[in-house]
């Protein structure tokens, strides 16, 4: 029996969505538009931000004989292409850990690499370095930086305690709510007046609870907001209404 008929290459949680009732995040007076995919659009600068793409995470344990479906890179690239089509940004910034490890560039399929290069040629692209990818493959095009400024905002990979106006990735925030005996756990943007941590966008990326140790020093008073990625819309939830765990 045929298990499934082929299906268009979209997954519900990573499809960009043009709905009008999406919340707006403000950081240091700059308006930010979170997207259902986990990307962030900054209209004032016509910039699109993404974090933790982790290209080739699927193939990263291949040498040990773990052969996960090697399609995570192209799934993630497909989401980026849709985002670019939709927002038509002047610049694209990837906030580090774009590649899962230092040998990812050797494993990546040539056709996937071509698509990534096409993206960076189409849009002014900056690849910030991350702890997983201190060096990026030259073939991908675009510029490489450790940190860049966007008006009053600083974009970087690892969030630092005490910074103001910082947008970072690295932590893969995930929040949980429990209502009527049901638990819902979703990727989220986590932020307060000083900073915003972006969710990981890569197809194989998991998450870390917003109550885990690394978040504690960023949100020292335990007060922050989570913008949770729902299926059709983004839900803004105050930290006191989140399940602690």
């Amino acid at each position: 029996m045929k298990p499934f008929s082929p299906k268009p290459q979209t997954t519900s949680s990573t499809t960009p969505c043009g709905s009008s009732d999406r919340p707006v995040i403000r950081l240091c007076g700059v308006e930010l538009h979170p997207d259902l995919s986990g990307a962030l659009f900054v209209p004032d600068y016509n910039a699109l931000l993404v974090a933790d793409l982790h290209f080739e995470k699927g193939s990263s344990h291949a040498h040990r004989g773990v052969h996960l479906p090697p399609y995570d890179t192209r799934s993630t690239v497909a989401v980026l292409e849709l985002l670019i089509d939709q927002y038509r940004p002047d610049r694209l910034v990837s906030l580090g850990d774009s590649f899962h490890d230092q040998t990812a560039g050797d494993r990546i399929d040539a056709s996937d690499l071509t698509r990534i290069r096409a993206l960076s040629e189409r849009t002014d692209t900056v690849w910030l370095t991350g702890n997983h990818d201190p060096v990026l493959p030259a073939e991908i095009g675009g510029a490489v930086a450790q940190e860049i400024a966007l008006g009053p905002l600083t974009l970087t990979h690892i969030p630092a305690a005490g910074a103001q106006g910082q947008i970072a990735g690295h932590l893969h925030p995930v929040a949980t709510i429990v209502r009527r005996g049901r638990k819902v756990r979703r990727k989220c943007f986590a932020g307060n007046s000083g900073r915003l941590i972006m969710p990981a966008l890569g197809a194989y990326t998991g998450g870390l609870s917003v109550w885990a140790e690394p978040f504690a020093e960023l949100f020292a008073d335990g007060k922050f907001t989570a913008w949770m990625l729902g299926r059709d819309r983004i839900h803004k939830v105050a930290s006191e209404n989140l399940r602690r765990r």
């Binding site: 029996m1 045929k2 298990p3 499934f4 008929s5 082929p6 299906k7 268009p8 290459q9 979209t10 997954t11 995470k57 699927g58 996960l68 479906p69 399609y71 995570d72 192209r74 799934s75 893969h172 197809a203 194989y204 998991g206 998450g207 870390l208």
Partner: peptide, 30 residues
Amino acid sequence: GRQMTVSSDLIYDVLRSHEPEHVLLRAAWD
């Protein structure tokens, strides 16, 4: 250590959209 591994739900989504005839999907379907 679980953060370093990939959730089987994500694998299912990716595999299903790229290779719906894969032998493991057939096993799961059966």
